[in-house]
Amino acid sequence: MTTTRAPATSRRTTRDPAEVPAGLPRWAYVPAAAGGLFVLLPLVALGTRVDWAGYWSLVTSESSRAALALSLQTATTSTLLCLILGVPMALVLARGRFPGRDLLRSLVLVPLVLPPVVGGIALLSAFGRRGLLGESMEVLGLQVAFSTTAVVLAQSFVALPFLVVSLEGALRTAGERYDVVAASLGASPTTVLRRVTLPLVWPGLVSGTVLAFARALGEFGATITFAGSLQGVTRTLPLEVYLQRETDPDAAVALSLLLVAVAVAVIGLTHRRGASR
């Protein structure tokens, strides 16, 4: 098993040293390196600003722990919600045949380009107490305002397009030929999805999920506009960082670094999982 799978894996991850890339001009290394520095330097600089002596106490303070726990909990829930809604959305957009599909595809992208604050205001208009659905939801006993649910809604709103876009792209690239063959062998559409389509687009699904989680974890603007900010309920790590900045810049820097570490860990972990699949 291991021996037979080795060639496929090595083909994907490493390059034969004898190969000469034909489409890589040498000058491209300069802006590429500058771009890399541009991304990495602020993160490294953040590390230099950290008060390492007091780091542990800063990130383990009650408010920090509450914010971290809330962030992980809400980002995980949002990611699950994104999967539940986003996988079928991507499927419908990639495979469905109905009028207005292209328009719908563009509309799904809107939260991606919208300033998060605008997203927050839009969510208020829909789910707020005086929003479009807010009143009927209140009748049903669903109170979204200032609740953790509101945080999850805000995060899902901004994270969903990331999942849909990357999965839809993967589905389009994979094409429908495998689906057709599987159906002809007697597999129902659900079986095709479970046993053929999703395994085929697995890397796209993983990267979309990671992107959605990372986006949910970093969500700030829509949350503060729509959900508010209360320790343990709605004050996620980014909101805590922004608030700590007012009085305790050291704590803000320490928490920022924590957020970076969590993001890097999540991306690193799932990337390895996805690649080994």
Binding site: V180, V181, A183, S184, L185, G186, A187, S188
Partner: peptide
Amino acid sequence: APHRRRVALLA
């Protein structure tokens, strides 16, 4: 539906 036809396709 295609999967109920017992018609297999080899491309």
